[in-house]
Design a protein around this nucleic acid. Structure first.
Lengths: 236, 236
DNA sequence: AAGTGGTCTAGACCACCCC
DNA sequence: GGGTGGTCTAGACCACTTT
């Protein structure tokens, strides 16, 4: 099915903002002007603007207008998940090995995360990420079939997943949320592929990637503790 | 001005969910049923439901319904900002000293954060937090006057700020966002009150508290590094 | 007074789920 | 086919800002 109208308007305005057609802090066209321009009702315009606000592209002031945010950093978006970029920057070579992939049914937990029905199809992709040939992290990614039909899993050895999202599926990333915490390695897969012992500490990173209001990617990564270390102490 | 209708419906449904009138994973009344129940249009119901989803209370599945989330943790909400609770749990005594407070005008940065006009009034409250009498962190809090008229600053020595929010202003917390990073101590205030040297490392925690879609509290805390320590290394 | 965003209505059609 | 959420319309009134 086609993208919703408000989604296209979101994409359009987002491009205009990123192309710096508008300066930071500048007022964009009023909602009533945008109604005319796109020939839609105000509700539709406001829905697009709402998501632009949520994703940090604009802020609103009642009685004045909608303004371009002065900080268009897209902060976290490239922090951990562009593994390849990070490693490249460090002058090392990132590689990736496809361990397994399958189509699976949505269980209740995944149903809640993606907001789709139990039993819906999901791709489950497991990959080992290496740095200069040494295992660094094990990633398990879930993406819904309804959004990524015929996902070219085989290309993953050559192309970054986010490139595929962008090129083949025209995904406009809106935001990503990451949580991470240290856990004890337990699964055989972790122990085998990361070459560690049972109960060694690994860092679990859980990432949800959103397209507007919907989760379109859910990934759990286990990172070797000597690659990524994280500590919080409350020394009370 | 009165709370919007959708805001009241949000509060109401939220209470029902938290009181476990609905079980986790259970379907709540359909949108059309809720229309009748509250005597409002579907748009209004959907606006309330939208924020409930955003704040993690429900999830939606098209064609099926709206369901109560199985994880009602409210995770981060009490992590750092309930300083008093944390310290109490550790068997130590938290105290708080009011350093200064004033009414100030909104500059462009704060205008963007709160989504209100430049020149609008804000309370600026600076407090020193101590553990067993030792300085631990310095907090600068901004809250907008339009939402917190006649804020009883003097009570802060006896009552927690979030208690005042709840009791006097009927705030229903929706969510909070926190970012933290290590910085070098530079301001005279930090150095003086935290009893540290210039360029010592402190942890800066920036918190935005949201009520539905609006920021209603913005706080910058500087924490002594021996109280709170945080490290991230990417050893590439 | 005019313009802007915020809220709300009453109704419509679509896409998806379940029977 | 009937129920559910998702999108969209055309219009209204309110609250706030600016002229």
């Amino acid at each position: 099915m086609e993208k919703a109208i408000y989604h296209n308007i979101y994409d359009n305005l987002r491009k205009e903002i990123l192309s710096e057609k508008y300066k930071k802090g500048e007022k964009i066209q009023s909602e009533r002007k945008l109604m005319e321009k796109y020939g839609v009702s105000r509700t539709t315009i406001r829905q697009a603007l709402f998501y632009l606000q949520q994703d940090g592209y604009i802020y609103k002031i009642q009685g004045k207008g909608n303004f371009v945010s002065s900080k268009l950093i897209n902060q976290n978006l490239n922090k951990f998940y562009s593994f390849s970029n990070e490693v490249n920057k460090a002058g090392k070579t990132p590689t990736s090995v496809l361990i397994s992939y399958k189509m699976q049914d949505c269980d209740s937990r995944l149903s809640e995360i993606f907001g789709i029905n139990e039993g819906s199809k999901l791709y489950n992709i497991k990959r080992l990420r290496l740095i200069d040939g040494s295992p660094a992290m094990l990633e398990e990614t879930f993406i819904p079939e309804y959004r990524f039909k015929n996902f070219p899993v085989d290309d993953l050895n050559n192309i970054q997943m986010y490139e595929i999202f962008k090129e083949k599926y025209n995904v406009s990333f809106s935001s990503a949320q990451e949580r991470f915490k240290p856990i004890k390695a337990e699964t055989k897969e972790d122990i085998k592929h990361l070459n560690i012992k049972k109960n060694d500490i690994v860092i679990e990173i859980v990432r949800k990637t959103y397209e507007l209001n919907k989760v379109i990617e859910y990934t759990i990564s286990h990172v070797k503790n000597d690659v990524f270390s994280y500590t919080v102490n409350l020394n009370l």
